[in-house]
Amino acid sequence: MKVRKAFVLGLLGLTVLAGCGVTGVWAVSGGLYGCTLRDEELADRLATFAILDVRQPDARKLGERYSNCDEDDGFAVAGQHYEHTGTREELLVFYRATAAKDGWQPGRDRDEDGLCFSKPYGGVTAYLSVWFPSSYDIEGEPPANAQEYGLDVTASHDGSAWC
């Protein structure tokens, strides 16, 4: 009887210890808040999406491609900024057609100036966003570069991503 009781207590202790270890690994890897290593890896994969390189002939890249994980919301993001000389409407027409050819499904417009698309990717839903910086800066002046726009691709393993 004493051997059986010791065995049960030992087994219970090992179970508790294993549970604490798993919980600790989960918390350290971002389970409680922020991004996990899995999210960071997803951001790197999103940065390879060919759609981020597609632009009209009059557009040029601004800065470098970026990829990271939004610590507040825990989703992966990759993107590229561009500058163009055409109108916003021409640009939106271009990306509606280009995204459709690449298998992106139209979603709700981000606002009156932006677009949102989605498509499945590796067990998650990826979102493509075409967006424009604010039309005016804090002082109410037009920005130095009124023709700038961005392309972002976001995704998350827990479904928290959006345009």
Rank of each mutant, 00 (worst) to 15 (best):
A144L: 10
L12H: 02
V130N: 06
V124A: 01
R60I: 12
P133R: 03
R96T: 07
V77K: 04
D158L: 11
N68Y: 11
L17Q: 02
P120V: 05
E64Y: 08
V25G: 01
Y149F: 14
C116Q: 08
R110F: 13
G79I: 05
E141K: 13
G107L: 13
L92D: 12
R65W: 01
G79E: 03
S29P: 05
P143A: 08
D113L: 13
E64H: 08
E148R: 15
A76W: 04
T85D: 07
K101W: 02
K101H: 07
S134I: 01
T154E: 06
A100C: 09
Y33P: 05
D53I: 00
S156V: 01
A97S: 12
P106G: 11
T85S: 08
V22N: 07
D111A: 08
Q147M: 10
L128F: 05
R45P: 00
L128A: 07
Q105L: 10
W104T: 03
A59V: 00
V25T: 10
A6N: 07
D111W: 11
D73E: 12
A47L: 00
Y149T: 05
L52M: 08
V77L: 02
T98K: 09
L91Y: 00
L151T: 01
K5V: 10
L91A: 06
Q147K: 15
D102P: 00
Y127W: 15
V153Q: 01
E40V: 02
S134V: 06
G34F: 03
A78G: 06
L52P: 03
D152T: 15
W131Q: 11
V8Y: 12
Y33A: 10
R4L: 11
W104N: 07
T125C: 09
C116M: 08
A27T: 06
L9W: 06
E90W: 08
S129F: 00
L9N: 13
W26Q: 13
G103I: 04
K61D: 11
S160I: 04
G103E: 11
G122A: 13
G79H: 00
A76S: 13
L52D: 03
K119H: 08
D39M: 02
G159W: 03
G24Q: 10
T87P: 01
V54I: 13
G34Y: 05
G34K: 00
T23W: 10
A47K: 05
V93P: 06
R88N: 08
E148H: 09
T36S: 15
G63D: 13
S118Q: 12
V28A: 15
V124E: 04
L9R: 11
C163D: 11
R38Q: 15
A47I: 04
D113M: 10
G123P: 08
K101Y: 03
V130Q: 04
D39T: 02
V93G: 08
H84P: 03
I138A: 14
Y82I: 02
T36A: 13
S134R: 13
W162F: 11
V8F: 12
V130G: 09
K61L: 11
M1G: 09
L128Y: 02
E41H: 12
K119F: 01
W26K: 12
H157W: 14
K2M: 11
D53G: 13
A146M: 07
A43M: 02
N68P: 00
R45C: 05
E90M: 14
E40Q: 08
W162K: 00
V8T: 15
F49V: 02
C35N: 05
Y95N: 09
L46T: 04
F7A: 15
K61Q: 15
